[in-house]
């Protein structure tokens, strides 16, 4: 066991590059630490446009941290320090010219537990729109219908748009949160274990939605569920101890991993 571990470390970090027009997010030598304790170390990877990229790895490996870093959610926490670069369409997200609210409008995020606001379904979807600008009601209604349709929720809620969002089921709430994010038309959608709190049928619906959405935007999915990663993602990155272990097309990572560590994790053997 010790031998396989060291052999994995000996292997050079797998870098998979995409050309500039294919690449949506580019992460380079990114370090992040909570109160001096490193959570992400020297991460370098490119995320392709209009594809689903999945981050997998054991709990605490840093995959959610990375996702939150892309949305600069760590800005809220003073004890977080970072170095390195994350570029969105060639622009560094930590750059002084980059406006954080604008970044978050371009990079939507969906969390583990559904978090609809305590308002009506309509107001939930309109929330992000209202922040940006005043739209005529007709236009806003159109966008809301489009967002709910894209999130495969329109048929279920069109008759009760003005009811409380908290009355929806967990799966519907999660799709509402996705619709809410879609309404402000982000380039990237980050999904942090979006189905982990849901029942199997709702999970299937979310997965189908993810596959459908990649024609519109770039998706990054963090998941604990190996089958889910295999089912929905085009590329898979395996992280461990805050480091990128392996990154490649999903088929290759799951059927023919280059490293023993990856294979051990995927097949459920302890490392």
């Amino acid at each position: 066991m010790l031998a396989s571990f060291s052999s994995a470390n000996a292997a050079s970090a797998p870098v998979m590059r995409f050309s500039a027009e294919q690449c949506c997010l580019s992460i380079a030598q990114f370090h992040l630490a909570y109160a001096g304790k490193a959570a992400l170390r020297d991460l370098t990877l490119d995320i392709p446009r209009h594809r689903v990229t999945a981050f997998i790895g054991p709990s605490g490996c840093g995959k959610s941290t990375l996702l939150r870093a892309i949305n600069r959610l760590h800005d809220l926490n003073e004890s977080v320090t970072h170095s390195g670069h994350i570029q969105l369409e060639g622009q560094d997200i930590h750059d002084a010219t980059m406006n954080v609210t604008e970044l978050r409008q371009r990079v939507g995020m969906v969390f583990q537990t559904p978090n609809p606001f305590p308002m009506s379904i309509y107001e939930n979807v309109a929330f992000g729109l209202r922040l940006q600008q005043r739209l005529p009601k007709r236009k806003r209604d159109d966008i809301i219908e489009w967002a709910l349709t894209s999130a495969a929720l329109w048929d279920e809620v069109k008759d009760r748009l003005h009811r409380s969002a908290w009355q929806l089921s967990g799966g519907q709430q999660q799709r509402l949160v996705i619709a809410r994010t879609l309404a402000i038309q982000p380039d990237v959608l980050l999904l942090d274990e979006p189905a982990s709190a849901l029942d199997p049928i709702s999970t299937l619906k979310i997965e189908e939605l993810i596959r459908n959405l990649k024609s519109q935007l770039t998706l990054v999915l963090v998941t604990h569920n190996m089958q889910q990663a295999a089912r929905v993602s085009d590329y898979t990155a395996f992280l461990q101890h805050g480091e990128l272990v392996e990154y490649g097309p999903t088929d290759q990572v799951f059927t023919n991993p280059r490293l023993q560590r990856t294979e051990n994790y995927i097949t459920g053997r302890t490392t």
């Binding site: 409008q105 939507g108 922040l131």
Partner: peptide, 17 residues
């Protein structure tokens, strides 16, 4: 819950919003 605040922030809301 903090998820509510994060939800708003992730949609591009400022602290005041």
């Amino acid at each position: 819950p903090d998820t509510q605040r994060e939800g708003a922030v992730a949609l591009g809301a400022t602290r005041l919003e």
